[in-house]
C-alpha cells in the first residue's frame, strides 16, 4: 500500500515518539508495503473479536462514560415529571418517588454526580495531555480537538455515502462525527448546569449578572433547561444509539464502553490512522495482520485481489 502523505506523517511521528529501532522499523515498513491498496479488503477480511481487539479508552474514560450515561438517563427520567408536575401522567411518577419535592431532591443529587463526572473528565484529559507532552508522546491529531482535516473528512465521507467515492477517508482516533458529538454534549451539559444552578441559586445569579440581564435571565433559563434536555434526548436516542447499537458492524452493541477496546475491523474502517499507530505500538498486531494477509492471500506483492469470503 502506498500511504497518503498524512498517513505517512502519522506513521513517522508514531515511530519517532515510540523510539522504534531499526529492526522494528523495517518490519513495519515491510508490512505496510504488502498491505493491499484497497482498504475495504483489509477490514472485510480481518478477524475481529466483537468485545474488542485494540486498546482505545482508559478505565477513567470508561468510568466517566458510565457515570454520564446513568445520570443522564435518570435526570431525563426525573426531569420530565418535575417540569410537568401538574399533568395527569406526572402525578403517579412523582407519587412513586414520594412526591414532587422528593423527585426534585433526587434530580438535584444526580445532577451533582454528573457535575463531578464532568470535573473528573476535564482533569483526566488535562493531566493526560500534560503527561504526554512531558513524555514527548503528545500528538494533537490523536485528540478530540477539531482540525481542518475533519472538515475534509466530513466532505469525503459524504461523497462516499453518496456513492461518489470508493473508500471512506483515512480518519484519526476521533473522527469528525465523534468530535461534533463530543462538543455538542459539552455545550449541552454546560447549558444544563448553568440553567439548573439558576433555579437552585437565583440570588447568586442575580448578584453576578448586571441588573438589566438578571431580570430576563430566569425566564431564559426556564426555557433553556427543558428544551436543551429534549435536544440531548433526541441526539442520544436517534444518533448515538444508532451509531453504537444499530449501525452495520456494531449490532447488537459496541462493547468499547465496557472493555475499552475497539474491534480491528472498526479501527481499520473508521480510524485507519490510529490503526497505523497500533502497528507501531503493538508488535502482536503486526503478527496478526501478517498472518491474516498470508492466509487470505491478500499480500499486495502477489498482485491478487479479492480475499476469501
Amino acid at each position: 500500500m502506498k500511504l497518503s502523505r498524512e498517513a505517512r506523517d502519522v506513521l513517522e511521528t508514531s515511530m519517532l515518539q515510540n523510539r522504534v529501532g531499526a529492526k522494528d522499523r523495517d518490519e513495519i515498513e515491510t508490512l505496510v508495503a504488502i498491505l493491499p491498496d484497497d482498504r475495504v479488503l483489509l477490514y472485510k477480511n480481518v478477524v475481529s473479536n466483537p468485545l474488542g481487539d485494540l486498546y482505545r479508552y482508559s478505565i477513567h474514560i470508561r468510568i466517566q462514560h458510565m457515570l454520564t450515561f446513568v445520570t443522564f438517563l435518570m435526570l431525563a427520567f426525573t426531569g420530565l415529571p418535575i417540569h410537568f408536575f401538574e399533568s395527569f401522567w406526572a402525578e403517579p411518577f412523582n407519587q412513586v418517588l414520594g412526591g414532587v419535592s422528593v423527585t426534585r431532591i433526587i434530580h438535584r443529587t444526580i445532577a451533582v454526580i454528573m457535575i463531578v463526572s464532568m470535573i473528573y473528565h476535564v482533569l483526566t484529559i488535562t493531566l493526560g495531555s500534560w503527561w504526554r507532552m512531558r513524555a514527548g508522546t503528545f500528538d494533537i491529531r490523536r485528540t478530540i480537538i477539531p482540525l481542518w482535516k475533519d472538515v475534509r473528512d466530513f466532505r469525503e465521507d459524504l461523497q462516499y455515502f453518496a456513492g461518489k467515492r470508493k473508500t471512506r477517508p483515512e480518519m484519526d482516533k476521533f473522527n469528525y462525527k465523534q468530535k461534533i458529538h463530543y462538543f455538542a454534549a459539552a455545550f449541552g451539559n454546560t447549558v444544563m448546569v448553568v440553567s439548573g444552578s439558576s433555579f437552585l441559586f437565583p440570588e447568586l445569579w442575580a448578584m453576578i449578572l448586571p441588573t438589566s440581564v438578571a431580570s430576563h435571565w430566569q425566564e431564559l433559563m426556564r426555557l433553556s433547561h427543558p428544551h436543551e434536555a429534549l435536544l440531548a434526548l433526541l441526539v442520544i436516542a436517534f444518533w448515538h444509539w444508532y451509531n453504537v447499537h444499530l449501525a452495520p458492524g456494531r449490532f447488537p452493541m459496541q462493547w468499547t464502553f465496557l472493555t475499552g477496546k475497539i474491534t480491528r475491523e472498526h479501527q481499520i474502517e473508521e480510524h485507519f490512522l490510529e490503526y497505523l499507530r497500533n502497528l507501531v505500538e503493538q508488535p502482536a498486531e503486526r503478527k496478526a495482520l501478517q498472518d491474516m494477509l498470508e492466509s487470505r492471500e491478500l499480500l499486495a506483492e502477489t498482485g491478487r485481489k479479492g480475499g476469501k469470503s
Binding site: 472485510k44 477480511n45 480481518v46 478477524v47 475481529s48 473479536n49 466483537p50 468485545l51 438517563l73 431525563a76 427520567f77 434526548l233 433526541l234 442520544i236 436516542a237 444509539w241 447499537h245 458492524g249 447488537p252 452493541m253 462493547w255 474491534t263 475491523e265
Partner: peptide, 28 residues
C-alpha cells in the same frame, strides 16, 4: 469478519439493546 458472540455476551448485548429500545419509547 466478526467472531460470533458467546451466549452470555448475547444476553448482555441484547439486554442493553432492549433497555435502549424501552428508553427510546420514554424519549418519544
Amino acid at each position: 469478519m466478526m467472531t460470533p458472540l458467546k451466549p452470555w455476551q448475547k444476553v448482555v448485548a441484547y439486554s442493553a439493546l432492549a433497555l435502549v429500545g424501552l428508553w427510546t419509547l420514554w424519549g418519544l
